[in-house]
Amino acid sequence: MKRNDQNFDLLWDVTNLVGRFFSSALLGKRFRGGKELSAENRSFLTGLAWGGQIVGVGIAAKQSGQDEKIDESTLCLRFTVRRKVPDRRLTKEHRIPKRLRFEHLGRRILTDVVEHDSVAAMQAIGPGLPAAQNVGPTGTITAIVQANSPVGTVFALGCAHVLAPPGLNTPGQPVEAPPDNNPQSLGNVVGVLRQFTGFNSTGANFLDAALVELDPTRASQVTNRFPDGSTFGPIVTSGDQLQRQVRMFRGTTGNWTSGIIRQLNVTRLISYPGVGSFSFSGLVESRLFNAGGDSGSPVVIDIPENPVVSMHIGGDNRDIAWSVPMMNVLSHFSVKII
């Protein structure tokens, strides 16, 4: 590939600038870049860093997109992400623009977004991380929990219709997080299915949950910290959360979405593609944006302490979300969030 040295040097400077900013944001340090980045770019890049989706940034030939005006040998600023999400699922501030403007250069730099085909083995394992069996639906890790007695075994909590769907619900089944979307390999196994709640097709269901026993060799990667640095607060045990402002950490986007609790103790019929339709009772109904893949996402009261309300199990794939109270899930399995 022929390269324009002037353009390459410019991209080299921009890549170093963005890389240094990401490092500062993730470490919680102040970025000492002067006025090289506008307030708009700082806000945008901070969202990307805290979203936990960025694997790397560098210089590469334009790869994605169908812009016929751009030659395949054109160099650009490439963002490599853990999971590429369609623009329609992202808010405007979380979309990587086709060209990113750098005021101090007076230039708009061409960008590219590609999905990492094998996520780094040492990434954090915790709430919000996509998870699935080798084949089957993808959901989200709710939290890292530990058995009350005997203390020691550590599990990832998620939804049963994702981690233990009918036909794949034998204890010992390997679970990937995030799934590598390759049915021929098991590249990102973090543990094995251990316990799960079943489904009653004729009566009421109250839980949709499963525990994945985590590989002890991955202990250094396990965390209950969200990408923005916050963690879980106390478990909400009373019914006074009606009309409270809540937020949910979505596995599909790697970001928070905010809303309000509409009803408590509701009964709804929830359909899971490829699994079945089941009636659930005792649900928390909230107005929260959701989509397929968000099942398991934790719901907390929208205050800095993050008191834990529930775990998302289904919705209308728009803005109505149904979840099961976290206190019921933890009590059923005799575990606690660590």
Rank of each mutant, 00 (worst) to 15 (best):
N306F: 11
D71I: 00
M248L: 06
W12L: 06
R318W: 04
D302N: 15
S331C: 01
P298K: 09
R107F: 13
G52K: 01
V85M: 10
H332T: 02
N169G: 05
A61L: 01
P178Q: 07
S323A: 12
E93G: 00
T46P: 00
I338D: 10
G187Q: 08
S286F: 12
T153V: 14
F196D: 01
R99D: 05
I260H: 01
P273L: 05
D5K: 14
T253K: 06
N317M: 08
T74L: 01
Q184G: 03
L157R: 14
L45H: 07
L264W: 01
Q146G: 07
T91Q: 06
M326Y: 07
L163D: 08
G198T: 11
A49V: 04
P325H: 08
S331H: 13
G187M: 01
V192D: 04
P183N: 04
W322N: 02
A321T: 08
V212H: 11
G167D: 12
A204I: 06
T91D: 13
I144L: 15
F22G: 03
A219G: 00
A321L: 06
F8D: 07
V190N: 06
V85L: 04
W322M: 02
L186I: 00
R318I: 01
V246Q: 10
S279E: 14
V236F: 03
G274P: 11
S149F: 15
G51P: 01
T80F: 07
G259W: 12
T153S: 15
D5T: 13
S277H: 09
S271C: 04
V162K: 12
R194L: 02
N255R: 09
G28F: 12
E40L: 06
I261Y: 02
N169R: 05
A177Y: 08
V275F: 13
A156Y: 15
G126H: 08
V324E: 05
I96Q: 09
E36S: 05
L48H: 06
G239V: 00
S185N: 04
S73Y: 11
R99A: 12
R247M: 04
P174L: 05
V57I: 13
N4G: 05
I144E: 13
A160G: 07
V55L: 04
I260G: 00
S258Q: 09
W50K: 08
P183L: 05
V299R: 07
A49M: 03
S118I: 09
H94Y: 13
R218W: 05
V236K: 05
N169T: 01
N290Y: 15
V299F: 12
S230R: 12
V300L: 10
V300H: 13
Q184I: 00
E36H: 10
G34R: 04
A25T: 14
G28L: 08
Q263P: 00
G139W: 11
F333W: 09
A132W: 14
Q123S: 09
W322R: 00
A49H: 06
C76E: 07
L157Y: 15
V57S: 01
L242E: 09
G34P: 03
G233K: 10
D5N: 10
V18Q: 13
N290L: 10
